[in-house]
Amino acid sequence: MTQTTFAEAFVPLKLANRSLAYKALAVLIGTAFLAVSSWISVPMFPVPVTMQTFAVTLVGALYGWRLGGLTVVLWLLESFIGLPVLAQGVPGPVAFAGPTAGYLVSFPIVAAFVGLLAERGFTRNPFTAFGVMLLGNALCLVLGAAWLASIIGLEQAWDFGVAPFIIGGVLKSALAAATIEMLRRSGIRLS
């Protein structure tokens, strides 16, 4: 029996074996998916409810830690230069200075974290995939709330930046795990 190396353990969508042009197209599609997911938004104060964490975790799981993290960074750069790709179309540096900044900064970390776990084989079945997505959502809430707490205090950060998003995080994690399973059953090779 041969031992599988880390790089061979899980190759999401086999993007690592593709040409640079193919990877660039995948990144472009990924940033568009992230933007569309951002526009699905329910305004709340101080942080809106969006499908961003669903998209961030899914991109991480499907693209792997390097390309997933890079895709999310490029999406954030699109916003930073003024493209309306974030929730409520808030472009530019304003989004990175307000109450949502911690969540935005967490997104590439979350994508890379989920991608790393996916590459280690933790998204091979729907139950462990759900756990991975849940961990990704939790990491986003912790990092985002840490920034928010520096602005409005710890108790209010919990009340306005974590508690209202827990059920949504669980649901988005289940949806992301179900999406991975659906792709696997449709014949798209994910491992």
Rank of each mutant, 00 (worst) to 15 (best):
E78C: 06
F54Q: 02
L104Y: 01
G136S: 10
F107T: 07
K14Q: 15
G30R: 15
V170G: 13
E78P: 00
L183T: 13
A111M: 07
P43R: 07
I81C: 02
A145W: 11
A177R: 10
F54T: 04
A174C: 11
F80A: 15
T71N: 00
A112L: 05
L20M: 13
L15C: 08
S41P: 02
W65E: 09
R18N: 08
G69Q: 05
V162S: 07
A61H: 11
P46F: 02
G98C: 09
N137I: 03
A163K: 12
L70R: 03
L104C: 03
S186Y: 04
F6C: 06
K23P: 00
Y63G: 05
V56P: 01
Q52G: 00
N137G: 15
K172R: 11
A61R: 04
R189D: 10
R189I: 07
W158I: 14
K14G: 05
L116V: 09
V132F: 01
G69D: 05
A21Y: 10
P48C: 14
G187D: 01
L76K: 00
V59P: 10
G121H: 05
R18I: 08
L175K: 12
A32H: 02
G82H: 04
V47M: 06
A101S: 14
W65D: 06
A174I: 15
F127S: 07
V47Y: 06
Q3R: 14
A35D: 03
T31P: 03
Q156A: 12
G153T: 12
V142M: 06
